Computed example of a mutant assay.
Amino acid sequence: MSGPNSDYDPVEVSTLQPEEVAAARDAALAAIAGATDLEQLKQARIEHTGDRSPLALANREIGALPPQARKEAGQRIGQARGAVSQALAARQEVLEAEREERMLVEETVDVTLPADRFPTGARHPITTGSELIADIFVAMGWEVAEGPVIEAEWLNFDALNLGPDHPARTMQDTFWTAPAEDHVVLRTHTSPVQARTMLSRQPPIYVVCPGRVFRTDEYDATHSPMFHQVEGLAVDEGITMGHLKGTLDHFATSMFGEGITTRFRPSFFPFTEPSAEVDLVCFVCRGTGLNGAGPESCRTCRGEGWIEWGGCGVVNPRVLAACGIDSERYSGFAFGMGIDRTLMFRHGLEDLRALFEGDIRFTTAFGTEL
C-alpha cells in the first residue's frame, strides 16, 4: 500500500494555478466594471461570487492539496475573492448614486405649477347599492327604517321567535358584548329594526331595512364577520305569499334587468311561517343553464339556471303578538338578502373582500353612481 501524497504537484488541481486564479479574478473585475446598472451588477455578483462561480469552486479544491501547499493556495484565493468583493462594493455605491441622481431628474415635479386636475372621488358601491335598493322600495310607497348595530338580546332573538336554546344565540354565530349579564349583542341581522318598527307603530307597515350586521364568520372570498343585509317587512290586512312573490319579482327586475324572476323553495325560519328560500333566474344565462350558445354549463349558476338569493316568508303570528300587533286581524311578509352578495351578482365580483379592503382603485371603478 502506498503512503499519502506529501508532494505538491500543481497539476493535481489546475483551478488553483496562479494564472487560473488571476484569470478568474480579472474576469470578475471586468464584469463588475462593465455593469451599467444595478441589475447587471446583480448578475455579475451571482456569476463571479456565487456558489458555482470559478473562485468559489477553486476555494473548495484547497482541501485536496497537501497540508504544506494549502496556506499558499488559500492566500491566493482569499486575495482574489477580496479584490472582487471590494470592487463589487465600490461599483454598487457608484450605481446607487447614479440611480438616485437619475430619479431626481426624471421624477422632478414643479410644485409651483397650477393644478389643472382634481380627483373627483367616488362613492363606495355598498353605499350606492344600499341607496339604490332603498329607492326601489320608496318608489313602491315603502319607508326606510334604521336601528342601532348594538342591540338588545330580546329584540335580536326573543321578539323574533328565536328561543333561548336556538343555536344562533351561541358564540358560534353571535358577537356578545361584555358583561354577559347585560344581554347585548352586535346584531346578527337587521330584523331587530323590524321589531322596533312594529313596537313603535300600528299597521299598515311597509318598511325596508338596509344596514350592517355581524356574525362570527371567517374572513375569506365569500364570508366576512361584518357584512350588509337588506330586509323588508309588510304588515297589513290580507297580506299573502302572492304579495311577497310579486314584491320580490319587482325587486329582482329592478336590480338585474327585465325577465329576471324568482322562485320559492320550502325552508324554515323561526320568525316566518311558512318560510322559503328565494332563488333568482340566472341573470347571465337567463335560466338556460348554458354558457352562451355552446354546450358548456353557465359558470355563474353552475348549469342550474337559478341562483340562491335570500330567505322570506309570512310573518309568524308569534312575532306579531310579541310586538303588540293583533295577529287575528293582520298578517305580513318579510324577506332578507345580502347587499354584498347582490352587488357581487350584479357586477361579477369574485371576492367579497374587495368590498371591505378600502382600495381606492376598486371604489373609483364604480364612479359616483351604480
Score class of each variant (00 low, 15 high):
Met1Gly: 15
Tyr8Trp: 15
Thr15Phe: 01
Pro18Ser: 12
Ala22Glu: 15
Ala24Tyr: 11
Arg25Cys: 09
Ala27Pro: 08
Ala31Lys: 02
Ile32His: 00
Ala35Arg: 06
Leu38Thr: 09
Lys42Ala: 09
Gln43Leu: 12
Glu47Tyr: 02
Thr49Cys: 13
Gly50Gln: 08
Arg52Pro: 01
Arg52Gln: 14
Leu57Ala: 11
Pro66Tyr: 09
Pro67Asn: 06
Arg70Trp: 09
Glu72Asn: 11
Gly78Phe: 09
Gly78Lys: 10
Arg81His: 01
Ala83Glu: 12
Ser85Leu: 11
Ala87Lys: 05
Ala87Thr: 11
Ala90Arg: 12
Ala90Pro: 04
Gln92Asn: 14
Leu95Ile: 09
Ala97Gly: 12
Arg99Gly: 02
Arg102Gln: 14
Glu107Asp: 10
Val109Gly: 01
Thr112Ser: 14
Asp116Phe: 02
Asp116Leu: 00
Pro125Lys: 00
Thr127Phe: 01
Thr128His: 07
Gly129Lys: 04
Ile133Pro: 03
Ile133Cys: 04
Ala139Ile: 07
Glu143Ala: 13
Val149Gln: 13
Ile150Trp: 07
Glu151Tyr: 02
Glu151Gln: 13
Trp154His: 15
Phe157Lys: 01
Asp158Thr: 14
Asn161Ile: 08
Leu162Asp: 03
Asp165Ser: 13
Gln172Glu: 14
Thr174His: 04
Asp182Tyr: 02
Val185Cys: 10
Val185Asp: 03
Thr188Lys: 01
Val193Glu: 01
Gln194Pro: 13
Leu199Cys: 13
Ser200Trp: 04
Gln202Tyr: 00
Pro203Tyr: 05
Pro204Cys: 08
Val207Leu: 01
Cys209Ala: 15
Arg212Trp: 04
Phe214Asp: 00
Thr216Phe: 07
Tyr219Asn: 09
Tyr219Gln: 11
Tyr219His: 10
Tyr219Ile: 10
Tyr219Thr: 09
Ala221Trp: 04
Ser224Ile: 07
Val230Cys: 04
Val230Ile: 15
Leu233Glu: 01
Gly238Ala: 13
Ile239Trp: 04
Ile239Gln: 11
Thr240Trp: 10
Met241Leu: 15
Gly242Met: 08
Lys245Met: 14
Lys245Asp: 01
Phe251Gln: 00
Glu258Gly: 12
Arg263Phe: 04
Arg265Pro: 03
Pro266Cys: 07
Glu273Phe: 03
Pro274His: 06
Pro274Leu: 05
Ala276Ile: 04
Val278His: 03
Asp279Asn: 04
Cys282Glu: 00
Phe283His: 13
Val284Asn: 10
Gly287Lys: 03
Gly294Met: 08
Gly294Ala: 10
Gly294Asp: 13
Pro295Met: 13
Glu296Asn: 12
Thr300Val: 14
Cys301Val: 02
Arg302Trp: 03
Gly303Tyr: 07
Glu304Cys: 02
Gly305Ala: 05
Ile307Asp: 04
Gly310Arg: 10
Cys312Arg: 06
Gly313Glu: 09
Val319Trp: 07
Ala321Gly: 02
Ala322Ile: 05
Gly324Val: 03
Ile325Arg: 00
Arg329Ala: 13
Ser331Asn: 09
Ile339Ser: 02
Asp340Asn: 12
Thr342Arg: 00
Leu343Asp: 06
Leu343Cys: 08
Asp351Ser: 12
Glu357Tyr: 03
Ile360Thr: 14
Arg361Val: 11
Thr363Asp: 01
Thr363Leu: 08
Ala365Cys: 02
Thr368Asn: 11
